[in-house]
Design a protein around this nucleic acid. Structure first.
Length: 498
RNA sequence: GGCGCUAUCGUCUAGGGGUUAGGACGGAUGGUUCUCAGCCAUCAGACCGGGGUUCGAAUCCCCGUAGCGCUACCA
């Protein structure tokens, strides 16, 4: 079958789901799983289902549900069905378990957790591999029913049949487990609540999920689930297990590595498009060296078969680079909208920036000048301050290097003299444009037997307070003649106080 | 311990019997220049080890080794 034919078969109703448990924020691993499900669904014009697995009432919180939804929304990963809450389907899960029990595919187990724990520990201490020993399998069904009816606590276990279990993983290829290593799975706890594997399989059957795309850490759950599909006489879905996202130490990415929540990255000033692109590249490559891609390009190129099997280290430096690329591509007016909260927090956002008008046009020009040197959104709020406000400090290292710097600059007095001369020149230069101001500064330097840099560096400190900025003449024109002259005044006064 | 998964530059990866093993991030050097960034150019940098199969193996097979994951009445 050719690729197109395969695609057509797959496309006959692809249904995938992202099934996070709401016990924390949406971490980057979860986001990447959601992303791949989304990409696969879009690629095959299928359905993307969001299912919240909130059956662990101890740890599940509504706050968690909110942040997960918020994270998905930020990344623009929308779902077609749901969100469904697994806790609403408990009765269906229970019915499946009871059906299996009735059919003799399961049995009641009266072993207490404490008892089990003791036996497990004893086995481990003796260096023996532990697996539930099926002690209760020997209890006749009638007796078990009577004891359970009489109030004795019991769990429902699934009786694992003998024989090999195999599936053709879409990313790992053929994978097999020997049922001998799988213990009889608990389906229903002694309080009657269903366990993860049961709920998961039951829901996936009910929701007619065709492809289960999830993290590698679920590989060992898969044989159990395959068994459950068989027992339920339902066709199992295709499985695709994604490589884990690792920290720099090659261990599964976790909080101790720093930021792991997607909303943290948002708050650090990453663009959702950059994050989306970066996450997609973690464990997947369309080949041909393609890296920076639009969602549409990623969707068109996405194939589960191209997913890697090796865990991928989350490289913040590359994320930052990608982010700078996206920032550079962003038109200034969109940029303005994105950094507005940050500017507002710094009290740099004035109401007159809201609508069209000269002031807004000017602000956009400032952002444009700052773009190439910005890696993350907060870089703008920091660098834009001297443009948007007259309140800024001289950076110590800039003062040290360009104002006081002994031999080369001749000391504060010499710098002050040059700035006075420059001030006079700038007061007269017409028009006040980049080429004209540059020509004026250079000829002034020449006439006084100095180097242009002797004027440029102190001027930069005067205008923005730092040793680095965009081209000084761009800055000069953006700041404008009047403010520039005032700032030179301020610098001269500062030099006199040195 | 048992079971499973994995193994190409520091990192993300391309390649899948014959390649100077390619690209990107990061690093280094040089250029542009008023600084930083950017941009441009150049450089350094990898097929885990051992056996097979083959005329030929990074690629296929086996065995090691290492790393990671799972091993709950959590999900």
């Amino acid at each position: 079958m050719g690729d197109q034919a395969v695609d057509q078969v797959i496309s006959a109703g692809v249904r995938v789901r992202f099934a996070p448990s709401p016990t924390g924020f949406l971490h980057v691993g979860g986001a990447r799983t959601a992303l791949f499900n989304w990409l696969f669904a879009r690629r095959h014009a299928g359905t993307f289902i969001l299912r919240i697995e909130d059956t662990d009432t101890e740890r599940s919180t509504e706050e968690s549900v909110r942040t997960i939804l918020e994270g998905l929304a930020w990344l623009s990963i929308g779902w077609d069905e749901g969100p469904f809450f697994q806790s609403r389907n408990l009765e269906t899960h229970r019915a499946l378990a009871l059906r299996l029990l009735e059919q003799g595919k399961g049995y009641l187990c009266f072993c207490s957790p404490a008892d089990l724990d003791a036996r497990r520990k004893a086995a481990e201490a003796a260096g023996l591999p532990w697996k539930y020993d099926r002690a209760c399998l020997a209890v006749p069904a009638e007796e078990a029913a009577r004891r359970h009816g009489g109030g004795e606590p019991a769990v429902v276990r699934f009786r694992v049949p003998d024989g090999p279990i195999a599936w053709d993983d879409l990313v790992h290829g053929p994978t097999t487990f020997d049922s001998a290593v799988i213990e009889d799975i608990i389906l229903l706890r002694s309080n009657g609540s269903p366990t993860y594997n049961l709920s998961c399989v039951s829901d996936d059957i009910e929701m007619r999920v065709t492809h289960v795309i999830r993290g590698d850490d679920h590989i060992s759950n898969t044989p159990k689930q395959v068994l459950l599909y068989r027992a339920a006489e339902a066709a199992p879905p295709r499985f695709a297990h994604l490589p884990l996202i690792l920290g720099p130490d090659k261990k599964r990415l976790s909080k101790r590595h720093g930021a792991v929540s997607v909303t943290e990255y948002r708050d650090q000033g990453y663009l959702p498009e950059a994050m989306f692109n970066f996450l997609a590249l973690l464990g997947w490559s369309p080949g041909e060296g393609r890296e920076k891609m639009t969602r549409e390009e990623m969707t068109a190129a996405f194939r589960l078969e191209d997913i890697n099997r090796k865990g991928a280290v989350f490289d913040e430096q590359k994320l930052e680079w990608l982010n700078s690329q996206y920032i550079n591509d962003l038109p200034a007016d969109l940029l303005a909208a994105m950094i507005r909260p940050a500017l507002g927090a710094e009290r740099l956002w004035a109401p007159d920036l809201e609508e069209g008008g000269a002031r807004r046009t000017w602000v956009l020009a400032v952002l444009e000048a700052l773009k190439a040197r910005s890696k993350r959104l907060p870089d703008f709020a920091r660098d834009a301050r001297p443009f948007l406000s007259d309140e800024f400090d001289y950076r110590p290292e800039a003062v040290e290097k360009h104002l006081k710097g002994g031999g080369k600059s001749g000391g504060p007095a010499a710098v002050a003299a040059r700035m006075r001369a420059l001030q006079e020149t700038l007061a007269r230069v017409e028009p006040f444009t980049e080429p004209a101001t540059e020509a004026a500064l250079r000829s002034l330097a020449e006439s006084r037997g100095d180097k242009p840099a002797d004027y440029i560096h102190p001027l930069r400190v005067a205008l923005v307070g730092t040793a680095v900025s965009p081209s000084i003449f761009t800055v000069l024109v953006l700041i404008g003649r009047e403010r520039a002259l005032t700032r030179i005044d301020r610098l001269v006064r500062f030099l006199e106080s040195c």
